[in-house]
Structures are given as C-alpha cells and as structure tokens.
Nucleic acid binder design. Structure first.
Length: 555
RNA sequence: GGCCCGUUGGAGAAGUGGCUUAACUCAUUGCCCUCUCAAGGCAACAUUCGUGGGUUCGAAUCCCAUACGGGUCACCA
C-alpha cells in the first residue's frame, strides 16, 4: 500500500489539495516592506498583560509599515476554553485602541484569509495533513497514553531525552498495511509528523530581536492531529501563518525552544517560513526575590482587567509597555510632551533581550502625566466611561451635575504645570467626594480633626472672621491677602519667619489659619488650592459649611 | 538534568576598544519654593559594568573559563 493510498484511506472526504489552498489564499498585494502580523490568543481566560504587550507590538509593527494586523483565535484546546472569553479579549483590546484590520473581531470575522477561528479550519488542516501522509511525512499513531508513559519512564531511567522520536517512535515503523488494518478495525489513533531531523545537528536561525543563533534540529515526531480532530499548536501555526500570509510572527520568548519544530514543519509542507520576533517576557520579583514570569494565579498585574478596574488610563499602560519595548521611547515621549505616542517608530533592534520587571511606580508616573495633560472635557469623559463600567457611586456623582464635575476636575488644570494628583479613577470618589453636600455631611458627622493646639473658641473665632472677610470676587492674590490680613488681626503670624523669630507673640501662623479653613470646608488636611476649591463650591456653600461646623463645635 | 536565551544602580536602560571621573527616565533621600497636598526647581544616589583570568598603551565594550537568573522539554497554547 502506498502512502498516497493510506492518505486516501484516512481522509477520503478531502478532495482539495495544497495547490487549491494556495490559489484560494494568494499572496497579499502589499507595498514593499509592509508587514503582516497577527495576534493569536486562545480563548482561555482574561487578557494577560504579556498578551497585551505582544498584541500592542504586533499592531504597531503592522501600522507603521502600512501592513496588516489581524487576530486569529486559537481555540483548539476545547478542554480549557472559557465561553465568551474570545469576545472579551477583543473588547479589552479595543479599550487600548488595538483594533485589527482583519480577522476575528469578537462577534464576526472580516477579511479574505479566513476563517480566522481555528476550530472552523478543520478542512484546511486536513488537506495539509493528507498531503504530509501522502508524501510519507506523517503517519497514524496508535499508542495510548499508557504506552507513552511507559516510553517516558524507560527514557527517564536511562537518562536519555524523553519524547516520541527515533527508535522510540514505535508507530513510525508500522507498514501501511498494518496501519490500514488497525484503522479499519476502529482502533483510535492520532497523526504524528515524521521528523527527519537529527538532535545532534544544529540549524541556524534568525530572530528579529535575538539575532542569529544556533539550535539543535528537531527530531520529535510530534502530534499534529489530535483525537478530537483538531490540530496542535505547532501544526496550526505553520498552516495558518502560511495561508494567512503572515510576514512576521511576533510572540513570547517561550516559543524559541519550539522553533526547530516549526522550521521543519514549514519545510516539510513546502512553505516559506516567516520572520520571527520572540519578545522578552514581563517578569516580577516573587517573595523570595526570584524573578518569574507574571503569573495569572499570583499576580494582579498579570490581568489587564486589573488596571482597567482600578481606572488607570489605557494610554498609560501602553506608554509603560512601550518603555519596556524600546527604551529610547522614554526620551522621545518626554520630547513630545506625552502626546502622540502613535508617531513613535518602534524598532526590534532597540528591544532589550531580558525580561523586564513590571514597575508599578513607573506606570503611576505615566498615568499622572497623561491625566494632567487632558483638558476638563477629556478627563470628564474618561472618568465617566470608567464609572459606567466599574464605579456606580462615581457615575451618580458625575450624572448629578456634569458641569460641576468638570469644574472640580478643572481646578489648577488650565495652566503651565497642571496638578498631577489624579492617577487612577478608582480613587476619585475619595479625593473629590467633599465637593458634594451629602458626602461632605457624612465627613463632618464622622468628626473633624483640628490641630489640638487650638481650642474650640479659637477655631470659631477664626472661622467667623474668615466668613465675614473672605471675598471670592477678587483674584487669588487679593484673596490670600485678605486671609492674611484676617489672620494677623487675630494675632497669627503672616509668615513662618516672623513666627519662628518670636513664637510666643503669636497664636500660630497663617498656615494654621488656612488649615482650619481647609479642614472645615473639605474635611481634609490636604486639598488643592483653597481659593479654587472655594470658587467651585461658591461663597454661599462655603458660608453654609462654616456655619455647620461652628454649630457642630458648639454642641 | 539536556538544550536555548540572558547578566550594566532599587527599577527601565544608554553604551559596539580611548569623547565614560558609565547618559537619560522612574523610584528613593535631602534642600528650596509654598496656605496644605500634588507639582516645580536644585542636589545626592554604580570608582564600576555577575565573577576570575587573558589580549591591549588603554576594556562595560574583544577572547577564555566559571557563577547566577530565566525559558523549554504534552493528544496546552
């Protein structure tokens, strides 16, 4: 029995050939230098920070070369699949402005190189597997998992490389008659690739980020077609990236070690291998001080949803990731005042080879810079869309009076060096709650903590004087002059130097006066510039709050 | 354990034989400014590039050895 006949026996229903597929998926008509990249997630859970990193780079590389970025869903592991996670993945990418030009879009597919979901590509894989069988480069394997265990144990006890290869690849030595017989008898089987490689020989490979290096040839007869009728990753990678005409495969560094498999697969299929870029993995220091890959199980930072829920601006995460990708980006973005990062030219040569430790502090820095750059309308709409997804309380506050919210967000914003105190939207309610009357009432009813060196009457005197004398119809400087004047009349020192020179002559400093007012109006020891806070609150509200506090003190 | 990749400060890193008494950024610390905070300004923070040898007038940069860290060895991707 010939190999061709065996192939026919196993896949009688497959009529198409590789040539037919080549015609159906012709080479893309793109300009010289245009890169076709792909992000190929499995729908097994939330978007990992490392995946965001990879997809971001893929997107960037395609965009800056006027190429194509597409998404392919690798759903061949039906056991681990989590329903709906594919859609969610795409949804999350979208919040980062990573939108594919074609491929799997979540609820539908776009493009001429589909289907883009692997479970829908069974026919295509079968054509390729049938071809490999017909040329003797793939064969059915009847080994059970206990057979494989046995082989492994034997190998381990002899301290030789484990796996299904060479002499250990039992089913490789079956003749086609035996194979046909066992298949006809209904014995379960899978299909393995027949490797011609020699572990002792090396192949030269080139990687866009690692450069040239040598690696041992593959000699494993890996499974390419599982008992569930779906291909394994390695095989699907070769077939899909060929027929989808990917020019550069960008993926995590953990794939380097399977590169020899992929190289051999491409060559056996008669396909030209794509360029490869293996990205460093994002790491974290564990409790023992060891570096390890960001882990879904142990690290919050591993899930992109964590940052989204906490309300970090999406842009800040991207900026941070670009910093890891190309360190010259930092200089560039400073020069460009934290704007238009999409104009930055990413380059694989400038990529570091070592996995960076995830740096939360740096993320915070970028988050503050970015939020400080937004105008009041932009930051309001960002806050609002965050609130709609994650924070009901904030949503209600904003909806109560959008203009009022804008004015709060605008305090010390429209100036050369805007305030940089907003980092993530999850802390917004805590920071600005006092601007809202019912929140404010809660705060003062919980009790205000004034400086213990002032007694009740001191505080009431100060507050009454301020209420009578502080006008908001003047500019900031005059306002402050009024406060100073008021303080001095009540024998507070106008500045620190005077006070330090003779503390016994004064009740305190002008800072103490301001603190009393600040605590009264905001319930906090720290707040933005009091003048602007009062402007937003308005004079009547301020007076009302002062009265409330005075009557509380009198009780 | 085999194989592969990597190793410059607390973190990200620049650096490819003399311009490096190791850039820049984050963090940290101190001072200044200031009604508080967030900022902003100024300053400090690796005599040394994992370690040991060598080549050279000269090395973080070249060579050799060694240590350490990470990845990977599935009908998972």
């Amino acid at each position: 029995m010939t190999d061709l006949e065996l192939a026919e026996l196993i896949f009688p229903e497959v009529k198409l050939t590789i040539e037919d597929l080549e015609k159906r998926y012709p080479k893309r008509n793109l300009k010289e230098g245009a890169e076709v990249t792909r992000f190929a997630p499995s729908p097994t859970g939330f978007l990992h920070t490392g995946s965001l990193f990879t997809s971001f780079i893929c997107h960037k590389v395609a965009n800056q070369s006027n190429g194509v970025f597409y998404v392919r869903l690798e759903d061949t592991d039906t056991k681990r699949e989590i329903a709906g996670s594919g859609e969610q993945l795409l949804e999350q990418l979208k919040t980062f402005n990573i939108v594919p030009n074609e491929g799997y879009m979540g609820d539908h597919e776009e493009g001429d190189y589909g289907p883009y979901v692997q479970s829908k590509r069974a026919d295509i894989y079968k054509v390729c597997i049938k071809y490999l069988i017909s040329i003797g480069r793939a064969y059915p394997c009847f080994c059970s998992s206990s057979d494989l265990d046995e082989i492994r144990k034997k190998q381990e006890s002899h301290k030789i490389i484990p796996g299904y290869y060479g002499q250990f690849a039992k089913c490789r030595f079956l003749n086609n008659e035996e194979r046909a017989e066992r298949i006809k008898n209904g014995e379960p089987y899978i299909i393995r690739f027949k490797s011609l490689g020699n572990h002792l020989r090396k192949i030269k490979v080139h990687d866009l980020v690692h450069g040239d290096f040598e690696i041992a040839q593959n000699d494993q007869d890996i499974v390419i077609y599982k008992s569930d009728g779906l291909p394994t990753y390695h095989f699907a990678h070769a077939v899909d990236d060929h027929f989808m005409r990917t020019t550069t495969v960008i993926r995590g560094e953990e794939w380097i070690s399977s590169l020899p498999i992929h190289v051999e697969l491409f060559s056996a299929l008669g396909f030209e291998a794509p360029k490869y870029a293996h990205l460093p993995v994002i790491m974290k220091l564990d409790e023992q001080g060891h570096k390890r890959k960001l882990s879904k199980r142990y690290d919050n930072e591993a899930a992109v949803s964590y940052f989204l829920k906490d309300g970090y601006p999406a842009e800040s995460l991207l900026m941070y990731l670009m910093t890891i990708a190309n360190s010259n980006f930092e200089e560039w973005i400073f020069l460009h005042k934290f704007e238009h990062m999409e104009e930055f030219k990413f380059s694989f040569d400038k990529m570091s080879l070592e996995g960076a430790l995830f740096d939360m502090g740096k993320l915070s820095f970028f988050a503050k810079e970015i939020l400080a750059k937004k105008n009041k309308d932009e930051i309001t709409s960002l806050a609002y869309s965050y609130a709609c997804s994650y924070n009901e309380e904030l949503k209600l506050l904003i909806e109560k009076d959008k203009e009022y919210f804008k004015e709060i967000m605008n305090i010390e914003r429209e100036k050369e060096n805007p305030r940089k105190d907003y980092e993530k939207f999850s802390s917004l309610v805590e920071m600005i709650g006092f601007f809202y009357e019912d929140k404010y009432d809660q705060i003062i009813n919980n009790g205000l903590t004034f400086n213990p060196k002032f007694n009740k009457n001191d505080i009431i005197t100060v507050l009454n004087a301020l209420k009578d004398n502080l006008s908001l119809d003047v500019d900031e400087q005059s306002w402050f002059a009024l406060m100073k004047e008021t303080g001095i009349k009540l024998s507070f020192a106008g500045n620190n130097k005077e006070y330090k020179a003779a503390p016994e002559n004064y009740k305190g400093t002008i800072g103490d006066v301001a603190e009393i007012l600040r605590i009264t109006l905001t319930g906090k020891k720290n707040s933005p510039n009091l003048y602007y806070v009062m402007k937003v609150l308005t004079k009547p509200v301020c007076d009302n709050r002062i009265n409330k506090v005075i009557s509380l003190l009198n009780n």
